[in-house]
């Protein structure tokens, strides 16, 4: 792998500042700075606080990553920076940094779609994972099922018509005062609960519509918690069970619509939830599909996946100009029909 290009990856689209150096499938060096502490008291990510932290942290972090790897920019073969979708203030910081480095060191720039970073990340850890595969992308900003046909080639089979699944976890954590970020907090709380204690809705499950919906489930959690304020563990467990039922029901529907896929892949921050992973593993096993879930650190936002997507795009001859736009919205499948009510999360 010493001949593989050395890629510098930059990620700043939400509340993680990250930089990584990747050669082939080897992570030569990487750093991630989470801003959780800065946002915790607000119960969610505040875009302006996030952007201020990114511009403070990013350049020294890139310097540290280069130093740790013992290389200079001259030895880097390409610079891959997230160009969206995400919180635009943060995206601009990372993208402009990447562009300036590319110009100064005379290297090609790859303006990476953050979602493509997640979508291709399983191939970073599994060299045997071939296209096409079915991707369940579950994060704080997204909940989608995509047929990944190749680098830059995606067919969206489902998306959420209201909340993203990670957003539902965050809101449920907020309702029950479990803390931020909500995903791990709800998962921890659910461990001691009975998933059958409360009957919560599974929105859209069993319907012909392929999409996801979590707004009704969140509202049901609110009412249930108001009526049973001392049953947080049972409510968390029942909520998680409802989410899992929604995800598996919709995944089965998508598999029926994508008969050529040979693997089921789950990625995005919510993919680090152990109960969700277990349910999807079972689903894939039952259908003799390969199952790939990147390790937890690769599921949450990081720069190694951006560098990897950059490497895949570079290998495909896909580089970008220094005028590449920073994009708050950037669907992987722009051709997909708009989903009812999906708004910005389509």
């Amino acid at each position: 792998m010493t001949d593989a290009p050395l890629i510098l990856g930059i990620e700043s689209s939400c509340d993680e500042t990250a930089a990584a150096l990747l050669r082939g499938r080897t992570i030569v060096a990487q750093r991630i700075a989470s801003q959780d502490d800065a946002h915790r008291i607000y119960g969610g990510v505040v875009p302006e606080i996030a952007a201020r932290a990114h511009v403070e942290a990013l350049a020294p972090m890139i310097e540290a990553v280069l130093a740790e790897a013992g290389v200079g920019l001259a030895e880097v073969d390409a610079i891959a920076a997230t160009a969206g979708p995400g919180l635009i203030g943060g995206v601009m910081v990372g993208l402009v940094t990447g562009k300036a480095l590319a110009l100064a060191a005379d290297k090609p720039l790859v303006a990476v779609n953050h979602l493509e970073g997640h979508a291709l990340s399983p191939r970073l850890v599994d060299p045997d994972l071939e296209f096409p595969y079915l991707l369940l992308l579950v994060s704080g900003g997204h909940c989608q099922l995509l047929e990944v046909q190749g680098v830059g080639r995606y067919r969206r089979l489902a998306t959420t018509i209201d909340d993203a699944v990670g957003e539902a976890f965050d809101k449920v954590a907020k309702i029950m005062g479990l803390g931020f970020p909500g995903g791990p907090a709800v998962e921890r709380c659910a461990k001691d609960g009975n998933p059958k204690a409360f009957k919560l809705p599974r929105p859209l499950s069993g319907t012909d519509e392929p999409h996801f919906s979590f707004a009704g489930l969140k509202t049901a959690v609110l009412r249930t918690f108001q009526a049973n304020p001392h049953a947080a563990a049972d409510i968390a467990a029942s909520f998680q069970a409802a989410v899992i039922d929604c995800l598996t029901d919709r995944t089965l529907k998508a598999l029926a619509a994508a008969p050529d896929v040979t693997a089921l892949v789950v990625a995005g921050g919510v993919a680090s939830n152990a109960a969700i992973r277990a349910a999807l593993t079972g689903l894939a096993d039952a259908r003799a599909l390969k199952f790939v879930a990147p390790p937890g650190w690769l599921c949450t936002d990081n720069a190694a996946m951006i560098a990897w997507a950059g490497a895949e795009r570079l290998a495909a001859g896909l580089t970008d100009g220094l005028d590449a736009p920073a994009r708050p919205r950037w669907p992987l499948d722009p051709e997909a029909a708009p989903a009812r009510g999906a708004g910005v999360k389509a």
Partner: peptide, 12 residues
Amino acid sequence: RVGLAAAKAFGL
């Protein structure tokens, strides 16, 4: 931030 990000990157 656009100016600062670029300036810091050129400096680096």
